[in-house]
């Protein structure tokens, strides 16, 4: 239990969402500056826990994702003037993260239209990074592998679901499961995201929707600071109900009832004669039967517009909603 742990933090840096979040019309407006100071304090607490704890910070920006900081590679950072009142590793990390975010946001301002944030890119980078550190250390000796044990990813999300990223997010979840990496999600602003809920649920992490956004730091410290090994002693809040709906492969819509290819398990919002993924041809008879068994009212299928609703699972034998 007293092993070092690794934390990969993914920051959602969508300028438009942060602009909305800071608007005074919110019950608890949270400007980005305040958010960042809370997060940096949280990261300091993570490193303070143990000398050997490692840390990586990734940013999901509109259209691209970058690594903002990694504790295994601090060289090349700015020369931080020594300060006798601050613990140097903290100061170094904070200044690198802040400087990199600033530089990236500066670049953004030149762009006009804002593409959706590359959350998947950041998530994949985080997974690859964890994979790398666990492999390089376990290669040398068994003692060192304890250093990188206990990896986890924390996503601080402000953007809504991007239904086109359903498949890559699912794939990331599966690889995280395989590598026993926990994905924690904190929804700092905006409505619940279905995909990230599933990510937290499937990897054994916790998903938290902030109620008091001005108390962000306290939420972070109490729920996301304990490393996975400690969570058997400390009850970390988990969501009681999870939205398990999936997005179809054809239109990338979130569906209540999906039609699943019996060969490759691709999901479609309506019965198709040929599977677009594996080119399997389905018999005409099945299609007719499926079409007949579909709910008659088109509005029942109308979750295609992606509005959140509690999952309904009709017992249609040939159709399946993905779990």
């Amino acid at each position: 239990m007293n092993n070092a742990s690794h934390l990969s933090l993914i920051l959602d840096l969508s300028p438009s969402q942060w602009h909305l979040s800071a608007a005074p019309s919110n019950t608890h407006p949270l400007p980005f500056k305040t958010f960042l100071s809370h997060v940096l304090t949280f990261l300091n607490s993570h490193i303070a826990q143990m000398h050997e704890n490692s840390l990586a910070v990734f940013g999901a920006l509109p259209g691209k994702s970058i690594m903002l900081y990694s504790s295994s590679d601090v060289s090349g950072g700015p020369e931080v003037p020594a300060d006798s009142n601050a613990y140097r590793p903290f100061k170094l990390m904070n200044s690198i993260v802040a400087r990199n975010i600033e530089a990236e946001l500066e670049l953004l301002e030149t762009m006009g239209d804002e593409p959706p944030v590359a959350l998947v890119g950041a998530l994949t980078k985080a997974l690859c990074y964890i994979n790398r550190i666990t492999h390089t250390t376990s290669g040398s000796s068994a003692e060192d592998s304890a250093v990188a044990a206990d990896p986890r990813i924390l996503i601080l999300s402000v953007s809504p679901d991007l239904s086109s990223s359903y498949i890559p997010i699912m794939n990331s979840i599966f690889s995280a499961q395989k590598n026993k990496i926990i994905i924690d999600v904190c929804k700092v602003y905006g409505a619940d995201t279905v995909f990230l809920q599933q990510a937290a649920h499937l990897t054994g992490g916790s998903y938290i929707d902030l109620e008091r956004r001005d108390a962000l730091l306290q939420y972070l410290v109490m729920s996301f600071l304990p490393p996975p090994t400690m969570r058997q002693f400390i009850a970390v809040p988990k969501q009681d109900k999870v939205d398990f709906r999936a997005a179809c492969f054809c239109h990338k819509n979130i569906v209540d009832i999906g039609f699943v290819c019996s060969v490759c398990l691709s999901i479609f919002c309506s019965p198709v004669p040929v599977c677009s993924t594996c080119r399997t041809k389905f018999p005409m008879k099945t299609l007719q039967r499926l079409n007949a068994s579909r709910p008659a009212v088109p509005s029942a299928n109308g979750s295609a517009n992606g509005t959140p609703r509690p999952p309904s699972k009709p017992a249609t034998p040939m159709s399946a909603s993905l779990r």
Partner: peptide, 9 residues
């Protein structure tokens, strides 16, 4: 957070 004036580091 860093700060204070104790010069303890």
């Amino acid at each position: 957070t860093g700060g204070g004036a104790s010069a303890s580091f």
